[in-house]
């Protein structure tokens, strides 16, 4: 059985705000009955202050789906809807002391229900284009749909390519057979054949600088590398933000789904590896939370994406 935290168990066995709110004026319904997870979130929002006065959930789903729903209602009660929209799925996961990788989608479902409910309150249509497939890489929680999309989009040919673009297969390597099967299928549809011996796509060139870099040059290079990694992270619903560079230490914020995800530490290690390859020097990547003197933050926010 899953290794659920005590918080998950507590919210499951003693759910808060179960049931529909009477007189709700914001309703969000998300999930998929075929996958066995579906959630209806009902909110009572004050029309003038836009404060969420009451929240209730009805969930068809497993222990972590019910716990995620329960904790979500606790988090957002009393918030304005603008503040509530800033609640991320990792806030939900964090509040539950983490979720197993296979169960992170339960927290995503919670956030999506919230977005849908607020869209409903504002009278706009909420659209979700997020699709989920069978979990392939258990180390980095990468599913089949994601791998397939990346193989199509980037014309990937080898397992190594897939690992470079999605992280999938970069851990214990047990899923390489499944990744090969996806490559075989997509390459066939593209009119090619899968060749396990094929050369991988050229990696980001490892240019070893002759002269020691200035800090500005180093920051720029680090930004370049982070930008190149960003699509994979964002595909997972996550992102990384460079906060500060001191000497050879880069302080980053893992945001989006990366934050609170149990894989964040491995992702950071992966980023560090890539930085060292490209910069040709030792770089240490440290979460910004461990940075000394936080008042001196140089915040380079929103540099790359909307």
């Amino acid at each position: 059985m899953w290794d659920y935290s005590d918080k998950v168990k507590d919210h499951f066995f003693n759910p808060k705000n179960a049931g529909a709110v009477v007189g709700a004026n914001a309703i969000g319904e998300v999930g998929s009955i075929s996958c066995g997870d579906a959630l209806r979130l009902t909110l009572k929002v004050n029309e003038t202050t836009e404060i969420i006065e009451d929240a209730g959930f009805q969930t068809f789903g497993c222990g972590s789906a019910i716990a995620s729903s329960s904790v979500l209602t606790e988090i957002i009660k009393g918030m304005t809807i603008d503040d509530a929209l800033k609640v991320t799925n990792q806030d939900i996961a964090k509040e539950l002391d983490g979720l197993p990788p296979e169960k992170m989608h339960c927290s995503v479902m919670g956030r999506e229900a919230l977005q849908a409910a607020i869209a409903n309150f504002r009278g706009v249509e909420w659209k979700d284009d997020h699709e989920e497939g069978a979990l392939i890489c258990k180390c980095f929680a990468v599913d089949a749909v994601m791998i397939e999309e990346m193989v199509w989009a980037n014309k990937l040919r080898t397992v190594e390519d897939v690992t470079n673009f999605t992280k999938a297969g970069g851990g214990c390597a047990a899923c390489h057979e499944d990744i090969e099967a996806i490559l075989e299928r997509v390459l066939k549809e593209r009119g090619e054949t899968f060749d396990p011996q094929a050369a991988s796509l050229p990696k980001v060139e490892a240019k070893v600088e002759k002269k020691p870099m200035t800090n500005l040059q180093r920051i720029k290079k680090i930004e370049d590398v982070l930008n190149s990694l960003r699509p994979q992270l964002m595909a997972d619903g996550g992102d990384v933000e460079l906060v500060e560079v001191v000497g050879n230490t880069a302080y980053v914020n893992m945001t989006g789904a990366c934050n609170g995800c149990q894989m964040a530490a491995m992702t950071i290690a992966g980023i560090q590896q890539r930085l060292m390859e490209v910069l040709g020097e030792f770089i240490k990547v440290v979460p910004a939370s461990e940075m000394p003197k936080p008042e001196k933050l140089v915040n380079i926010e929103g540099i790359s994406h909307a």
Binding site: E29, G31, L39, M109, A116, D128
Partner: peptide, 10 residues
């Protein structure tokens, strides 16, 4: 039931 609650696929 199948019609009353038809959540968006997520």
């Amino acid at each position: 039931p199948e019609q009353a609650f038809q959540p968006t696929f997520a």
